[in-house]
Design a protein around this nucleic acid. Sequence first.
DNA 1: CTCCAATTTAGAATTATTCTAATTCCACTT
DNA 2: AAGTGGAATTAGAATAATTCTAAATTGGAG
Lengths: 149, 149
Amino acid sequence: MTTNSGDRGGVKGGDARQTLTRQRRVVLRVIEESREHLTAGEIYEAARRELPRISHATVYNSLKFLKDGGFVREIGFGSGGASRFDRTGARHDHALCTRCGRLVDFELPETAELLRAAARRSRFRAESIHLTLTGVCPDCRAAERAAPG
Amino acid sequence: MTTNSGDRGGVKGGDARQTLTRQRRVVLRVIEESREHLTAGEIYEAARRELPRISHATVYNSLKFLKDGGFVREIGFGSGGASRFDRTGARHDHALCTRCGRLVDFELPETAELLRAAARRSRFRAESIHLTLTGVCPDCRAAERAAPG
DNA sequence: CTCCAATTTAGAATTATTCTAATTCCACTT
DNA sequence: AAGTGGAATTAGAATAATTCTAAATTGGAG
């Protein structure tokens, strides 16, 4: 309504701007700087500290834009009703603990090979591959040994 | 309030029943018989055709029960705000089309090996592994060739 | 400067999920 | 056959997540 200040990081020239606007950059930075995997709601709150007038719609739109552009990834889990978002940066995978719900990053080297195999099987043109391990995290394993159930 | 008819498939003996009740079985069958990946809402509608008095809570509870028991898997995607559910049956993976959003099943043989590697890296005790390929599905590839972008 | 299309905003509307209290169910006792 | 106790279900309200709408703002192009 009043402030939508600052440049838009113009890149395009023409008129179909479609660029990394200020708000989108803030959303991206929030995601990149967080060590956790945030929900859209948490991203909204964090972005608001910098752009107090940013709206839900803009956060969701930015998230869509960033997802389509490959900057972030959306990961949906049973962990409560909300999607979480994750920087794409260096490719990596996730492990989800079935006891405590913790979501941890890890890297697996042999995924290039895997990508080709999966593309062949699915007949898709592959863009990326992502893998989720479910199991019991080290902490919960320790807890189990301490008090077996 | 009136009908909660039929047996509960008793298995347990004691009193901690925790079994495949009628409603849970219906929910499971809905998922198994569907060729698509349904949302909780869709499952609720389908289950209601058989158990008209089933409630949202029961569907969500059943889903949780079946998930914990390894009967179904919850898959969350950008495909709109709701999780989708999928029979676990034969292990398989998913491919998500970035153009049309279609979600397709496929199988990859080399996942046993992968499971071990992932468990090693993440230090989790592995229960299962799941892999999602994102890319362009055969139909969209064909459409692209017809009218390039 | 004016126009234009993309973008953002505020907030309402819609959907999805969880919660609550009351009820029903059934394996087990008595 | 009636009683007990705890798991499960129900109806519907409450809460949370996501999408929508109309109006306003933006910045480059003309």
